[in-house]
Nucleic acid binder design. Sequence first.
DNA 1: AGCGTGACAATTA
DNA 2: ATAATTGCCACGC
Length: 103
Amino acid sequence: VPDKFSDLGRRRDARTGRIVAAVRAIPEGFVRTYGDIEPGAPRLVGRVLAGYDGDPIPWHRVVRADGSVTQGPRQLERLRREGVPLRGDRVDLRRARLPPGLR
DNA sequence: AGCGTGACAATTA
DNA sequence: ATAATTGCCACGC
C-alpha cells in the first residue's frame, strides 16, 4: 500500500530538487534550455519555476530550445544586463548555451 | 476516467 | 523561417 513515501512521490520530489539545483547552478552570462535541464519533461521545469517560492534563483537563464524566452521583455532585459548574447529577441544559443549534459 | 491546459520539444512539410 | 502535429509530465475540474 503506497503511503506518502511511495516510489512515485519520492521520484517527483527528487526531480523537483534536481531541477531547482540545476537552475541555481547556471552561471551568470549563460543559459540552459528547459529540455537540457530535464530531458523528457521540459514542461515540468516550467511548472517548478512557476510555483517556486524559495530563495531567489536565476530563472531568467532558462530559455526555449530555439533561444526564445518565455517571460517577455522582463527576462530579455535581465539577460541583456548580464551580457548574454542576443540575436534580436532571442538568445544566441551557440554562444550562451551551456553543455547540455552538465549536471 | 476523461479532457483541457501549460514558463516545452522534435519532426515534418 | 514559420506552422502544424505529436509526444511529454503533472494538475485540476
